[in-house]
């Protein structure tokens, strides 16, 4: 039983929990301190010296302020004070800022100098990501909301947008880069750790901005090339022949917006669904891909992702919905 005396510990205990909202960003798949990419590690190697240097400068300035406040006025103190202002307020900060600028610029140059082994086109749309791989001698691979990259190889991401400004950021792998309509920006990522890393839009882009997520799946290079070869294939024949799923898809008009290669569905508006069953999540990284989630996504789209451009299909007959979901899940 808690005695009244022990209640006094509650305050400090709660205080110890206070930094949690900040610290919970320090690890995990969205953390830029996770060091899952060469670029993230380069940025981290800048961060710690900058943080320690800033702490030293801040402490020194505060110490000088206290010292100056407590000192009595004198002619000698006036001369010393002016020298401190000249050196501490002008000369030394100029040198420090010049060194910071140079270090930052050299880091940025090193990041952009890596020669890429792979080029991926990523197009930001309200509110999802169109991802296209163009490998010479191979059919173009178009997918959505999932960027697969081989471990240890530098990938060049060519970033564009068709509507408003977005910003692509996979914190664990590297820095962020804006996607500006009418421009192609270039970002290089060199993943070093296998895993599924979280990505997000880092520039407010409208109603569902906060639900505009993506996954960066890092695999071994061999597994990546196998995946790419599979993705280049048209839709799985067994899915197309399965229980009228394709008919349900076409009858509902889904093909006006979505493409399934190997069928007459060639809509360019929404995500390519040729291999949607092989993705980990739906709704631009929002919920895991399960039959139940997919069913809810189709019938109550706006409930899952408020503001989404895709219309909901609440009036779809349950049997047709089931056939549609089974069909989409089979599109591996």
């Amino acid at each position: 039983m808690r005695s009244p005396g022990t209640r006094t510990w509650c305050g400090p205990r709660l205080l110890r929990l206070a930094p949690l909202p900040v610290l919970c960003g320090c690890e995990g798949r969205h953390s830029w301190l996770a060091g899952a990419g060469a670029e993230a590690r380069a940025i981290e190697s800048l961060f710690w010296p900058f943080l320690i240097g800033s702490a030293i400068v801040w402490t020194a300035v505060m110490a000088f302020a206290v010292f100056a406040y407590r000192s009595a006025a004198s002619d000698k103190g006036e001369r010393v004070g002016r020298a401190v202002i000249l050196w501490g307020g002008a000369v030394v900060p100029t040198i420090v800022v010049a060194m910071l600028l140079l270090t930052g610029l050299l880091t940025l140059r090193a990041l952009s100098a890596r020669s890429p082994a792979l080029t991926v086109q990523v197009d930001g749309e309200q509110w999802w990501w169109r991802v296209a791989y163009r490998v010479p001698g191979q059919a173009e691979v178009v997918t959505a909301n999932e960027i697969r990259l081989p471990r240890g190889e530098t990938a060049e991401l060519l970033l564009t947008s068709d509507d408003v400004i977005h910003s692509l950021w996979a914190p664990a792998l590297g820095g962020k880069m804006d996607m500006v309509p009418g421009r192609t920006n270039r970002l290089t990522l060199t993943p070093l750790t296998i895993g599924s890393w979280g990505g997000l839009c880092a520039e407010y882009c409208g109603a569902a901005h906060a639900q505009m997520r993506f996954e960066v799946v890092v695999t071994e290079p061999e597994a990546f090339r196998d995946w790419l070869a599979d993705e280049a294939m048209p839709a799985a024949p067994e899915a197309l022949s399965e229980g009228g799923g394709l008919d349900a898809f076409l009858d509902a008009g889904c093909g006006a917006c979505h493409t399934i290669r190997g069928t007459e569905a060639d809509g360019p508006v929404g995500p390519d669904l040729t291999h949607v069953g092989g993705r980990g999540r739906i709704g631009a990284g929002l919920v895991p891909l399960t039959a139940a989630n997919l069913s809810r996504w189709i019938s109550h789209t706006d409930d899952v992702k408020p503001g989404v451009r895709m219309p909901a299909y609440p009036d779809l007959a349950p049997e047709a919905l089931d056939r549609l979901v089974a069909f989409l899940m089979a599109l591996k």
Binding site: A90, V97, A98, L101, L102, L105, R109
Partner: peptide
């Protein structure tokens, strides 16, 4: 003095990047 430093800082990126 201040603006000479500012001019040098402004020019620094163009001297570091080749592309």
């Amino acid at each position: 003095a201040l603006n000479a430093v500012a001019v040098i800082f402004t020019a620094a990126p163009s001297l570091v990047f080749g592309q």
